[in-house]
């Protein structure tokens, strides 16, 4: 375990070293790729600016809100559709069709309808994250053990009680997987919206840095989005693992 950590750190150090050396040796012009030390310097400058923190907050705002809306809608609709077989059959084709529509296709539409503010960004984020969650919830619901459901039925549990006691616990691990995937996608769409539409946030700041030729700053901001992504992935995986441990019994049967 300690060995792995050391190797990982060595890998990161090596990566930084390569980033430092390539422009220094002139293999790539430092106008395109500044040395790592300069990127770190630019990062330091960014961290000292209030505008940076505002941008970060805007991005996180969009991410949290979008994910929240998508999660509530996805879980509620997923459970509803999943619990009623007729509804499941009726919506299957529509879901299959709407899901693969790339949410960036909506960019021009949200721009003309909603302008370039938070709402536009939110629509993109929610659209992309919603399907991830919905689809996983539906998988989870399909995984319900018919014996468990029939037992609950035999003991006279009504539909809502069955949702709470049978459907939800079975679907929970899948919900968590959906949330993890959605969290990553939400960040992508958040930054995309900012970058392309100009909604306030880190993406816009990257676009500004690019157009004003502040290359090191641009890289520094990209590093920030990457770190944000890592934090989200690591956090989401930790949450998912907890939920799975919590539901050992469910998983060990579903696995193999």
């Amino acid at each position: 375990m300690r060995g792995r950590l050391a190797l990982g750190l060595a890998g990161l150090a090596g990566f930084l070293l390569i980033l430092e050396v390539i422009p220094r040796l002139g293999l790539v012009s430092s106008r395109y790729l500044p040395p790592a030390t300069e990127i770190v310097g630019a990062l330091g400058r960014e961290l000292a600016e209030t505008a940076f923190w505002t941008a970060l907050r805007d991005t996180l705002n969009g991410w949290v809100l979008g994910l929240l809306i998508a999660a509530v809608a996805g879980i509620a609709l997923g459970l509803l559709i999943g619990a009623v077989p007729l509804l499941r059959e009726l919506t299957a084709s529509t879901i299959e069709f709407l899901r693969p529509i790339p949410s960036v296709a909506l960019i021009p539409l949200v721009v003309v309808l909603l302008g370039t503010g938070l709402e536009s960004k939110l629509v993109l984020v929610v659209y992309a994250a919603f399907w991830q969650i919905l689809v996983q919830v539906l998988y989870g619901v399909r995984d319900v053990d018919p014996v468990a459901d029939e037992t609950a039925r035999a003991y006279g549990l009504d539909r809502s009680a069955r949702i709470v006691h049978v459907l939800w616990p079975t679907a929970l691990p899948f919900v968590m997987t959906g949330l993890r995937l959605a969290a990553a996608v939400a960040l992508i769409l958040c930054v995309t919206g900012e970058l392309v539409i100009g909604a306030p946030g880190l993406g816009t700041r990257i676009a500004i840095a690019q157009t004003s030729g502040a290359v090191a700053d641009m890289y520094a901001l990209i590093v920030v989005t990457g770190l944000l992504g890592v934090a989200i992935n690591v956090g989401a995986r930790a949450v998912e693992r907890r939920a799975l441990r919590w539901h050992q019994s469910v998983r060990s049967e579903a696995a193999v």
């Binding site: 990553a184 392309v196 990209i222 989005t225 990457g226 992504g229």
Partner: peptide
Amino acid sequence: LRAIPPPV
């Protein structure tokens, strides 16, 4: 590298 939102 994977965590960097690709559009940036």
